[in-house]
Design a protein around this nucleic acid. Structure first.
Lengths: 224, 224, 224, 224
DNA sequence: AATGAATGAGGCTTCATTCAT
DNA sequence: TATGAATGAAGCCTCATTCAT
């Protein structure tokens, strides 16, 4: 047992073989496991025993990397919402070409992200479920992810209006209206499970179509 | 707390001391308190002690009316989602007049219900948060509340298409697209609190405007 | 409901009818019910709710007659072991006729009492089960019931020896040996239930036969 | 208590502090402590706190080894009745020599076991006290311990009759009659405590003497 | 005398956290 | 670094007891 997974190379003991545990990967593995459990059961009902079991380690080991369950939760949220955060950069670039093309491309990405990627979906669930216990997490997510997203959308809408592609509409004040179907599909799937999920491609196309007609300058519209 | 001692209700002195009896009202009071606590903390993190304290009774009393915490939760969900259930009847009536008027009236109601009424909002939160523990509750809600709602919307859209008011669109297959802004406003408020709530009237009007333009038959649209 | 079970005779309201509750009988009814429950579950596991339900009253009523669960238990034991106590008088009379006849008559009675009467059997169970909680009850039972019984048997044995019917034997010092088969049948039935009960009459006859042979002066025995 | 801090076992220092680890010995220690408490107070009135305190651990530790109080009770009964179970093998050997010698040897053993060994005695008490809560335990004990015991006795009695040593008697049908004094001494001691215990050796001799006379073929008895 | 709603102490059980190895 | 036995605070639930009606 003392020698399991150990090898001797050059007179020095190093971790080796399938049982080798790469210490740099441990926190990630734990966070991974924690995510699954937190997503399934929520913060309070999640047992560190289950997290440990899923990560293939023992409960005590978690405490080598995270000082408390709460910290583990925070780390998990931080880690799992990183993709969303990173994507934002692309959005803030100066808009070019037809505004509708930008929206199309943006929402196509957002569907993949928020509806089809289970990770992001479950982040949403956790944010909703644990606001009162972790208001800071939600607030940071609002400030760093959703707020900028809304702003970016607003800029695109304005850009569309300016270039005469869109009519003036409430979408300028409430870009949320454009984003809403994404949230709808996301919560729908969160609630009713993958079995009742809305057909992705068709739903997305429907969304884009309605949005386009909703935003578009009509025949008789006066330029705003 | 405010009611310690004696109280006067309807000009009649009623027992209101630490040991007052109120068989009729107790279950309601408990469910009321339970709702607040469950909404705040979720099922697992809610302490029956806190529920009792909020209801002005002691823990043991809860068990006179509900056999377990789980049953209390179920009763709470049932009780609190009753308004939504009852409203459905109105929706299923045969459509009359402009389809857009029906949608306007319907969504006006839905905003009041799902966005402005805290009760309904919090029900949504709980459904999202506790699916894995109470799948039956969610399933029943889908079958009895949301499913019929979607169906009703679909009928209105078809009715609008038939009378030439609306163009054919994905809204027929996915009435969810029309409903989405309600869900968006609901989850937005659930997440970010009343302080960040979207301006109700303006948002609703924006929604209806975009929807109308999105659904409406355009100048060059071919009928059918 | 206010008039249930009430009658008016001679201008005076009196309890009447099948629902009449005769207050003199209440304590007895409660003790009766308590006995069943204590016998089934033991002191600690018995719920006053169940006692009340069995007695057809409510829990609070018990406290009108017995100040505590413990007192109820004591009263139950006292009440239920009364028959044994009363029987003792008969035993202490001066012996007459063949000693064996006395023993026969005595054990016949004891079988009926300790083996066939469920009440007495269950008293034994409770005494065994609750000694450490109610040592006084057991002590009193020993002093007032079992002790005298053993003494009485001893006197009969001595009487038998004196009249040359029995040989001297350990039964003089340990009349328990004669009594043992009764206890055996009693505990057997307590443990294994009525379904596995030993055949009463045959067993008793067997007991008496073996006892007679065991005690009897043999051909070669020297008079002791 | 005596072992707080460090202890020396077999010349080796072992951890014995408040948090010592003893995976191998723990279950045994717990069962040991549980036995004492269950025997003293019965299942319902026994507090796991007390069991833990007696075992020198805390309540939570019990649950590392036993999933519930009930399981602990079952394990305790199983463990504590093991000696009785193991002894049975010896009984089933083919009888040799005088039947009375076999009986003498057997009952000598049984006295040591059921009367003088506190463990076995208390097992009897628990069986009697908890039948209604743990019928299976009792049933298994009947099937595996007492049933075979009775059968073995019956074989010896028959063997004695066959070899002309015993007369035919009810002991053949009811070997319980022979066994009864053991049970009597056992319950006597259970009820009245060690202070009132019957004098072991004399009582046993008395039992054997009466039994021998009771079973023996007399001068005038007809064979068979 | 009787009710039965209410209480609150106490028990079983869970689980985050600690710590000796 | 990793383990996993041990801890102990806390939560759910029960039930003897109280008390206003």
């Amino acid at each position: 047992m003392a020698s399991a997974g150990k090898g001797v190379i050059g007179g020095k003991t190093v971790p080796a073989g399938p049982r080798r545990r790469r210490k740099e990967e441990r926190p990630g593995e734990i966070v991974e496991a924690a995510f699954e459990e937190f997503a399934r059961s929520g913060f309070a009902a999640t047992k560190l025993d289950d997290v440990a079991a899923r990560a293939g380690i023992t409960k005590g080991t978690i405490y080598l990397y995270f000082p408390s369950k709460e910290d583990l939760f925070l780390a998990t949220m931080r880690e799992m919402s990183r993709p969303s955060r990173e994507h934002l950069a692309a959005l803030t670039a100066a808009p070019q070409g037809p505004a509708m093309a930008i929206l199309r491309s943006h929402f196509t990405f957002e569907y993949a992200q928020m509806v089809e990627d289970r990770r992001t979906r479950e982040i949403i669930r956790m944010l909703l479920a644990e606001v009162s216990r972790f208001p800071d997490v939600v607030e940071r997510w609002r400030a760093e992810v959703i707020g900028p997203e809304v702003e970016a959308l607003r800029r695109v809408v304005r850009y569309g209006i300016e270039r005469g592609e869109f009519r003036p509409s409430a979408a300028e004040e409430f870009p949320h209206l454009l984003f809403a179907p994404v949230i709808m599909a996301c919560t729908w799937r969160l609630m009713f499970g993958d079995d009742h999920a809305l057909d992705g491609a068709a739903y997305l196309e429907g969304h884009l179509d309605l949005m386009e007609r909703g935003l578009a300058r009509g025949e008789g519209d006066v330029r705003g």
